[in-house]
């Protein structure tokens, strides 16, 4: 659990982060969104004390984050830096192994962990391990940056726009991988992004920042349905809202009784994908099948459109 209480950061006269309080439940993902310069990175860096707050307290699992020396605190928190920040003079494998080396793991264990992470991020350890960062594409560098943050299996992970440079396909894959890792290890993640789609998809909760202030901190559905201000409304994109809302729900929650023609859609697909399929194929209904292939019923255009409407 991460408790942020009344955190303020001032540089001279300008207040960059203004009295922010939020609570991040253990084993959940909190996504921070906001315009450029709204203080997202600064807030993130106060958690691992790369930036010391002007006032306020941050507690990790109940303990003030100032109770350890900064460098020890940072070894226990994964950090994927905005714009990757790889060490240009170290190979990809050495970069990923940075924190395990600092923690004094033995060489064999480090190698195993590095290979495992590289394979996870589709970088062949043989081919990419000995390369230097400048020999990688921007997207590959970013994946190495994320792998480096994960290396020591931290309980808390801070990620600053980690998937910005990835193409949609690899980004999707990286997001799913991160969700899987988060489920498996119960990691608590704070993720900064500019991509509303990513925020809705990944976040258990979304924090919206504007000019250093936290303007809304709530579940994605609530942010979409009841934006706290005009600013939040613009940020989440008024015209995209119905689709974003649909993308939160699974097909299994929209199943109606009855049958329909054609190829069945799996029940764990998003409702948004189901609606897209319906509109594209010009049919009024699609059959739904369970994970075992059993037919469960159908989804209809009418049913989905009702769900996309603003909740009462």
């Amino acid at each position: 659990m991460i408790e942020i209480e009344g955190i303020t950061k001032r540089y001279d006269a300008t207040t960059v982060v203004d009295d922010v309080s939020m609570l991040i439940e253990p084993r959940t993902i909190a996504v921070i969104v906001g315009t450029s310069g709204s203080g997202k990175t600064t807030l993130l860096r106060m958690i691992n004390r790369l930036v010391e707050p002007t006032s306020g307290v941050i507690r990790l699992d109940g303990a003030d984050n100032r109770s350890l020396p900064g460098y020890q605190l940072r070894r226990s928190i994964g950090y994927a830096i905005q714009g990757h920040g790889l060490f240009p003079h170290r190979t990809v494998a050495q970069n990923i192994g940075t924190v395990p080396v600092l923690l004094g793991w033995e060489a064999a264990r480090i190698k195993r962990r590095v290979d495992e992470l590289m394979t996870l991020y589709q970088l062949d350890p043989q081919a990419f391990g000995p390369r230097y960062p400048h020999e990688l594409s921007g997207g590959q560098q970013q994946r190495v940056g994320v792998a480096r943050a994960l290396a020591a299996e931290p309980n808390v992970l801070l990620m600053d726009e980690p998937f910005g440079a990835l193409d949609p396909i690899i980004r999707n894959k990286a997001q799913e991988d991160l969700l899987a890792i988060q489920k498996r290890f119960g990691t608590t993640i704070i993720l900064v992004t500019h991509d509303m789609e990513e925020a809705v998809h990944m976040g258990d909760k979304i924090a919206v920042m504007d000019a250093g202030k936290l303007v809304q901190y709530a579940k994605p559905a609530e942010i979409l349905a009841k934006p706290a201000s005009a600013f939040v409304e613009t940020l989440v994109g008024a015209s995209e809202k119905p689709f974003r809302l649909l993308s939160l729900g699974r097909v299994r929650d929209a199943v109606e009784t009855g049958a329909a023609e054609g190829e069945a859609i799996p029940d764990d697909a998003s409702q948004r994908d189901a609606l897209a399929e319906l509109l594209w194929s010009g049919r009024p209904a699609l059959p739904v099948k369970g994970a075992d292939g059993r037919p469960l019923g159908r989804v209809t255009v009418d049913g989905l459109v009702k769900r996309a409407a603003r909740p009462a």
């Binding site: 940072r74 830096i81 920040g85 790889l86 924190v99 600092l102």
Partner: peptide
Amino acid sequence: PRAANDAARGMGMTDRQRLFGVEFPL
């Protein structure tokens, strides 16, 4: 590069480790 220094601190290097491990070689 600022980013390299930043990463070194972010990964939990002490000042001395950062000096000899990152700043000096670069």
